[in-house]
Simulated assay, not measured.
Amino acid sequence: MNSNYKNFVPAKSIPFVEFLINEHNFTLKIVNQRQTKHGDFRQLPNGKFQITVNNNLNKYQFLLTLVHEIAHHVTHQKFGRVQPHGQEWKAVFQHLMLPFLNPEIYPKDILPFLANYLKNPKASTDTDVNLSLALRGNIAESGKSFIFDIPFGDLFIFKNTIYKKGNKRRTRFECLNMTNKKVYLFNQNVEVKKYDGK
Protein backbone atom coordinates (compact mmCIF):
# COMPACT_ATOMS: atom_id res chain seq x y z
CA MET A 1 0.00 0.00 0.00
CA ASN A 2 1.22 3.46 -0.82
CA SER A 3 1.49 5.16 2.59
CA ASN A 4 3.19 8.36 1.40
CA TYR A 5 -0.33 9.65 0.58
CA LYS A 6 -0.46 10.63 4.28
CA ASN A 7 1.65 13.70 3.50
CA PHE A 8 -0.87 14.75 0.84
CA VAL A 9 -4.16 14.73 2.79
CA PRO A 10 -5.40 16.60 5.90
CA ALA A 11 -4.16 14.79 9.05
CA LYS A 12 -7.65 14.16 10.45
CA SER A 13 -8.73 12.46 7.22
CA ILE A 14 -6.02 9.75 7.35
CA PRO A 15 -8.06 7.08 9.27
CA PHE A 16 -10.96 7.41 6.78
CA VAL A 17 -8.63 7.35 3.77
CA GLU A 18 -6.78 4.34 5.17
CA PHE A 19 -10.10 2.52 5.61
CA LEU A 20 -11.10 3.25 1.99
CA ILE A 21 -7.73 2.11 0.64
CA ASN A 22 -7.82 -1.13 2.69
CA GLU A 23 -11.47 -1.79 1.89
CA HIS A 24 -11.11 -1.42 -1.89
CA ASN A 25 -8.38 -3.24 -3.70
CA PHE A 26 -6.32 -0.82 -5.81
CA THR A 27 -2.84 0.64 -6.09
CA LEU A 28 -2.46 4.36 -5.45
CA LYS A 29 0.21 6.21 -7.42
CA ILE A 30 1.05 9.86 -6.82
CA VAL A 31 2.22 11.31 -10.12
CA ASN A 32 3.58 14.54 -11.59
CA GLN A 33 1.10 17.23 -12.58
CA ARG A 34 -0.99 16.62 -15.72
CA GLN A 35 -2.57 19.58 -17.50
CA THR A 36 -5.86 17.89 -18.31
CA LYS A 37 -6.73 16.02 -15.12
CA HIS A 38 -6.16 15.87 -11.37
CA GLY A 39 -6.48 12.08 -11.13
CA ASP A 40 -7.70 8.93 -12.84
CA PHE A 41 -8.85 5.37 -12.26
CA ARG A 42 -8.12 2.46 -14.57
CA GLN A 43 -7.96 -1.30 -14.80
CA LEU A 44 -4.47 -2.44 -15.76
CA PRO A 45 -3.79 -5.21 -18.31
CA ASN A 46 -3.07 -7.62 -15.41
CA GLY A 47 -6.61 -7.05 -14.11
CA LYS A 48 -5.52 -5.00 -11.11
CA PHE A 49 -6.88 -1.50 -10.45
CA GLN A 50 -4.85 1.69 -10.21
CA ILE A 51 -5.69 5.20 -9.07
CA THR A 52 -3.36 8.09 -9.82
CA VAL A 53 -3.50 11.56 -8.26
CA ASN A 54 -1.37 14.59 -9.17
CA ASN A 55 1.32 15.57 -6.67
CA ASN A 56 0.86 19.34 -7.12
CA LEU A 57 -2.59 19.50 -5.49
CA ASN A 58 -3.03 20.97 -2.04
CA LYS A 59 -4.32 18.64 0.71
CA TYR A 60 -7.97 19.56 0.20
CA GLN A 61 -7.85 19.14 -3.58
CA PHE A 62 -5.88 15.91 -3.23
CA LEU A 63 -8.38 14.38 -0.81
CA LEU A 64 -11.38 15.31 -2.96
CA THR A 65 -9.68 13.95 -6.10
CA LEU A 66 -8.70 10.71 -4.36
CA VAL A 67 -12.25 10.09 -3.11
CA HIS A 68 -13.61 11.02 -6.59
CA GLU A 69 -11.41 8.29 -8.12
CA ILE A 70 -12.20 5.72 -5.39
CA ALA A 71 -15.87 6.38 -6.20
CA HIS A 72 -15.14 5.36 -9.83
CA HIS A 73 -13.57 2.13 -8.54
CA VAL A 74 -16.48 1.34 -6.20
CA THR A 75 -19.02 2.17 -8.94
CA HIS A 76 -17.17 -0.15 -11.33
CA GLN A 77 -17.19 -2.97 -8.74
CA LYS A 78 -20.89 -2.53 -7.89
CA PHE A 79 -22.46 -1.70 -11.24
CA GLY A 80 -19.98 -2.72 -13.95
CA ARG A 81 -19.96 -0.45 -17.00
CA VAL A 82 -22.11 2.63 -16.45
CA GLN A 83 -21.84 6.33 -17.37
CA PRO A 84 -18.50 7.56 -15.91
CA HIS A 85 -20.15 10.42 -13.99
CA GLY A 86 -23.73 9.16 -14.04
CA GLN A 87 -26.25 8.69 -11.22
CA GLU A 88 -24.52 5.58 -9.83
CA TRP A 89 -21.16 7.34 -9.50
CA LYS A 90 -22.77 10.47 -8.01
CA ALA A 91 -24.51 8.41 -5.30
CA VAL A 92 -21.30 6.50 -4.45
CA PHE A 93 -19.20 9.68 -4.41
CA GLN A 94 -21.68 11.49 -2.15
CA HIS A 95 -21.73 8.51 0.22
CA LEU A 96 -17.92 8.21 0.34
CA MET A 97 -17.47 11.95 0.93
CA LEU A 98 -19.81 12.14 3.94
CA PRO A 99 -17.19 11.37 6.65
CA PHE A 100 -14.95 14.09 5.18
CA LEU A 101 -17.59 16.87 5.41
CA ASN A 102 -16.20 17.83 8.74
CA PRO A 103 -14.65 21.13 9.95
CA GLU A 104 -11.71 19.16 11.36
CA ILE A 105 -10.90 18.04 7.81
CA TYR A 106 -12.14 20.80 5.49
CA PRO A 107 -11.88 24.43 6.68
CA LYS A 108 -15.11 26.35 7.29
CA ASP A 109 -14.49 28.56 4.25
CA ILE A 110 -14.50 25.49 1.96
CA LEU A 111 -17.25 23.35 3.57
CA PRO A 112 -20.35 25.23 2.29
CA PHE A 113 -19.03 25.18 -1.30
CA LEU A 114 -18.11 21.51 -0.99
CA ALA A 115 -21.53 20.58 0.42
CA ASN A 116 -23.22 22.51 -2.39
CA TYR A 117 -21.05 20.81 -5.05
CA LEU A 118 -21.85 17.36 -3.63
CA LYS A 119 -25.60 17.87 -4.14
CA ASN A 120 -24.94 17.16 -7.82
CA PRO A 121 -21.22 16.49 -8.38
CA LYS A 122 -19.78 17.01 -11.85
CA ALA A 123 -16.93 15.28 -13.68
CA SER A 124 -14.48 17.99 -12.59
CA THR A 125 -14.44 20.16 -9.48
CA ASP A 126 -13.00 22.91 -11.69
CA THR A 127 -16.43 23.38 -13.31
CA ASP A 128 -17.69 24.59 -9.92
CA VAL A 129 -16.01 28.00 -9.84
CA ASN A 130 -16.75 28.79 -6.19
CA LEU A 131 -15.51 25.43 -4.92
CA SER A 132 -12.46 25.51 -7.18
CA LEU A 133 -11.45 28.95 -5.87
CA ALA A 134 -12.15 28.00 -2.24
CA LEU A 135 -10.04 24.83 -2.57
CA ARG A 136 -7.15 26.96 -3.83
CA GLY A 137 -7.60 29.53 -1.06
CA ASN A 138 -8.47 32.06 -3.80
CA ILE A 139 -4.78 32.19 -4.68
CA ALA A 140 -3.52 31.61 -8.22
CA GLU A 141 -0.34 29.68 -8.97
CA SER A 142 2.87 31.70 -8.72
CA GLY A 143 3.32 33.95 -11.77
CA LYS A 144 -0.31 33.54 -12.88
CA SER A 145 -3.61 35.37 -12.37
CA PHE A 146 -7.20 34.23 -12.39
CA ILE A 147 -8.88 35.35 -15.58
CA PHE A 148 -11.43 37.41 -13.62
CA ASP A 149 -8.50 39.58 -12.40
CA ILE A 150 -7.41 40.43 -15.97
CA PRO A 151 -8.85 43.81 -17.07
CA PHE A 152 -11.31 43.86 -19.99
CA GLY A 153 -9.49 44.21 -23.34
CA ASP A 154 -6.09 43.14 -21.93
CA LEU A 155 -4.01 40.37 -23.49
CA PHE A 156 -3.05 37.22 -21.63
CA ILE A 157 -1.33 33.92 -22.38
CA PHE A 158 -2.98 30.54 -21.94
CA LYS A 159 -1.19 27.36 -23.10
CA ASN A 160 1.34 29.39 -25.14
CA THR A 161 -1.40 31.24 -27.04
CA ILE A 162 -2.24 34.95 -26.72
CA TYR A 163 -5.88 35.88 -26.03
CA LYS A 164 -7.72 39.15 -25.56
CA LYS A 165 -10.23 39.25 -22.73
CA GLY A 166 -13.75 40.19 -23.76
CA ASN A 167 -17.23 40.35 -22.25
CA LYS A 168 -18.50 38.17 -19.48
CA ARG A 169 -21.37 35.87 -20.34
CA ARG A 170 -23.41 34.36 -17.52
CA THR A 171 -20.54 32.43 -15.94
CA ARG A 172 -17.70 32.60 -18.46
CA PHE A 173 -15.59 35.13 -20.33
CA GLU A 174 -15.45 35.49 -24.11
CA CYS A 175 -11.79 35.67 -25.14
CA LEU A 176 -10.41 36.24 -28.62
CA ASN A 177 -7.61 33.95 -29.75
CA MET A 178 -5.18 36.41 -31.39
CA THR A 179 -3.79 33.71 -33.69
CA ASN A 180 -6.91 32.23 -35.30
CA LYS A 181 -9.29 35.12 -34.41
CA LYS A 182 -11.85 32.72 -32.93
CA VAL A 183 -13.67 33.44 -29.67
CA TYR A 184 -13.34 30.92 -26.84
CA LEU A 185 -15.21 30.77 -23.53
CA PHE A 186 -13.11 30.64 -20.37
CA ASN A 187 -14.30 29.67 -16.89
CA GLN A 188 -13.71 32.42 -14.32
CA ASN A 189 -11.26 30.29 -12.34
CA VAL A 190 -8.84 29.58 -15.22
CA GLU A 191 -5.29 30.66 -14.37
CA VAL A 192 -3.48 32.61 -17.07
CA LYS A 193 -0.29 34.64 -17.50
CA LYS A 194 -0.50 38.36 -18.05
CA TYR A 195 0.93 39.35 -21.44
CA ASP A 196 3.57 42.04 -21.18
CA GLY A 197 4.28 42.33 -24.90
CA LYS A 198 7.64 40.51 -24.83
Rank of each mutant, 00 (worst) to 15 (best):
135 L>M: 03
53 V>I: 15
128 D>N: 15
56 N>M: 07
107 P>G: 08
114 L>M: 03
131 L>Y: 06
76 H>K: 14
91 A>T: 15
71 A>K: 04
76 H>M: 11
118 L>T: 02
114 L>N: 01
92 V>N: 01
106 Y>K: 10
107 P>W: 08
84 P>E: 15
131 L>G: 00
54 N>V: 01
54 N>L: 02
63 L>N: 10
80 G>S: 08
79 F>R: 10
135 L>I: 03
74 V>W: 06
131 L>N: 02
57 L>P: 05
100 F>H: 02
78 K>N: 11
114 L>P: 05
131 L>M: 04
44 L>G: 00
83 Q>K: 15
104 E>P: 04
74 V>G: 09
79 F>M: 10
76 H>G: 06
51 I>E: 00
44 L>P: 01
74 V>M: 09
48 K>Q: 12
91 A>S: 14
90 K>Q: 15
93 F>P: 01
76 H>A: 13
57 L>T: 06
103 P>S: 13
98 L>K: 15
122 K>M: 11
99 P>R: 05
131 L>I: 03
68 H>W: 10
88 E>D: 14
65 T>V: 12
43 Q>F: 08
97 M>G: 02
46 N>P: 05
124 S>F: 13
93 F>K: 02
46 N>S: 07
97 M>I: 04
79 F>A: 13
90 K>V: 09
45 P>S: 08
113 F>G: 00
56 N>C: 09
78 K>I: 06
53 V>L: 02
104 E>V: 07
86 G>I: 12
126 D>E: 08
131 L>H: 04
68 H>M: 09
98 L>W: 06
135 L>W: 01
139 I>N: 07
130 N>I: 00
49 F>Q: 05
95 H>M: 12
139 I>G: 00
101 L>Q: 15
56 N>F: 10
66 L>Y: 10
126 D>K: 13
49 F>S: 05
49 F>V: 00
136 R>A: 12
87 Q>K: 15
53 V>Y: 00
69 E>F: 07
56 N>A: 12
99 P>H: 06
131 L>K: 03
96 L>K: 01
89 W>K: 04
105 I>L: 10
84 P>H: 14
111 L>N: 05
110 I>S: 02
120 N>H: 14
47 G>K: 00
122 K>C: 04
67 V>G: 10
68 H>V: 06
63 L>I: 11
68 H>F: 09
45 P>D: 11
116 N>K: 12
63 L>Q: 08
86 G>C: 13
131 L>W: 05
113 F>T: 01
109 D>N: 15
44 L>M: 14
100 F>Q: 05
52 T>G: 02
126 D>I: 10
119 K>N: 14
84 P>M: 14
126 D>P: 00
50 Q>S: 06
114 L>E: 00
140 A>H: 02
59 K>H: 10
54 N>A: 14
105 I>W: 07
106 Y>I: 09
43 Q>E: 15
52 T>C: 08
66 L>T: 11
45 P>T: 03
105 I>T: 06
73 H>K: 13
68 H>Y: 09
62 F>N: 07
94 Q>M: 08
89 W>R: 06
120 N>F: 12
90 K>Y: 02
111 L>F: 06
73 H>A: 09
